[in-house]
Computed example of a mutant assay.
Amino acid sequence: MTYIYFDHAATTPVHPEVVEAMLPHFTQNFGNASSTHSAGREARAVLNQSRDTLASFIGCAPSQLLFTSGGTESDNLALFGAAAARQSLGKHIITSQAEHHAVLHACEHLESQGFEVTYVPVDSTGRVRVSDIEAAIRPDTILISIMYGNNEVGTIQPIQEIGTIARSRGIAFHVDAVQALGMIPMDLSRMPVDFMSFSAHKINGPKGIGALYIAKQAKMEPMLYGGNQERKRRPGTENVASAAGFAKAVQILSRDRYEKQQNLEKLRNAMVAKLHQLLGPEQAVVNGHPDERLPHILNISFPGVSTETMLMNLDLEGIAAASGSACTSGSLEVSHVLKAMQLPDALTTSAIRFSFGIGNTLEHIEEAAAIIATIVGRVRNI
């Protein structure tokens, strides 16, 4: 049985070139980047080179880039750090109902600390309305946090427009770009963004390392204490091997980005076309924005077949997919993103996320679509 991995939005396989780039820093060049001897200086050089590579790719100065343990830490650090630094100006924060839990749960914690959070709605495609963001702004608003591309349905948000409004009002603007890195061209030197979060394992890099962009004018309090690393904003012994891996993954992205995006778009379109051919558009309903979307994410509902049933059957057939839903006490909850989109129950309770990447082929699409159609037919007949 062929194993087909369609869950690249959750994590991606580490690229062989990334593994190769990391190995020497586990075995030969293992120095602590804070040490002053030659081994430490060598590690420091690797860390600096890695930061330079990522900074060049996203269009910022290396000094504006902070290495973290991943997207969740980057989101938390941006929200907690900005809130702490700006609380003398106010305690109101704006985000959307469709954010990643790394932002939503951080906002819930801030609410317990006396901050007020407005959760703006999204439309039926998962997109926020710029007018809703503007209407939610108050004199005491200090921070807006909106993700670039949604991790469940792939919808891209109007970041430029929101950032322009935030900057004109003196409000800090954070963007979770974990799914967008490499999928959307970005030049942070031209974007009205104060904080932006990234993660290596979404782009065929290693798990356990991410980055946070911090604009020169942005104020942020550290959340950890104990060292001078990362300009005292994120102390702790640096993960040099993973930084090298992150940089190599970015280099590969830079080299192959156009070809990769074209291939992902082809795979996604082929999956939609095949499922519509086999089941019909009414029985395989695509969720998310039709145009403003990431190329690698496809969220699709199969009315009459529960998400849990479909995922279980797909797994038995050797196909890895996801729901985007939280798992509580062994059962799936309906996705908060699809709830926020106010889709009918028939769609929210039958949604599956397929996400594509390295290793996927059109043959995989054909095989998976046939299996899905068989599962749908079998379950509906029952």
Rank of each mutant, 00 (worst) to 15 (best):
H8W: 09
H8T: 13
T11M: 12
T12R: 08
T12S: 14
P13L: 06
P13R: 04
P13A: 07
V14W: 00
H15D: 15
P16S: 06
P16Y: 03
P16R: 05
V18H: 03
V19M: 08
V19D: 09
V19F: 02
V19E: 14
E20F: 02
E20S: 13
E20G: 00
A21R: 15
M22N: 04
M22R: 09
L23C: 00
L23V: 15
L23M: 13
P24D: 09
P24N: 07
H25W: 15
T27R: 11
Q28M: 06
N29C: 02
A33R: 07
A33H: 05
S34W: 04
S34P: 00
S35L: 08
S35F: 09
H37A: 02
S38T: 13
G40V: 09
R41F: 00
E42D: 06
E42P: 00
E42W: 00
A43Y: 03
A43L: 08
A43I: 12
A43T: 09
R44I: 01
N48A: 13
Q49P: 00
Q49H: 12
Q49V: 02
S50F: 02
S50W: 05
S50D: 10
R51S: 04
D52F: 01
D52Y: 00
L54E: 04
S56M: 07
S56L: 11
F57P: 05
I58P: 11
I58G: 04
I58H: 03
G59P: 13
A61D: 15
A61C: 05
S63A: 15
F67M: 12
T68C: 06
S69Q: 12
S69K: 12
G71P: 13
T72A: 13
S74F: 07
S74L: 10
D75T: 12
A78G: 05
A78L: 07
L79N: 08
L79M: 15
F80E: 09
F80G: 00
A82S: 15
A82V: 13
A82H: 06
A83K: 05
A84S: 14
R86P: 01
R86E: 15
Q87W: 03
S88K: 12
S88I: 09
G90K: 08
G90T: 10
G90H: 04
G90N: 07
H92D: 10
I93F: 01
S96Q: 10
Q97T: 15
A98F: 06
E99S: 15
L104S: 14
L104P: 03
L104N: 05
A106F: 04
C107V: 11
C107L: 10
C107P: 08
E108R: 12
E111L: 01
S112H: 08
Q113M: 14
Q113R: 13
G114D: 07
G114W: 03
F115P: 06
F115R: 06
E116V: 08
E116R: 13
E116D: 09
V117A: 01
T118V: 05
T118S: 14
T118N: 03
P121E: 03
P121I: 06
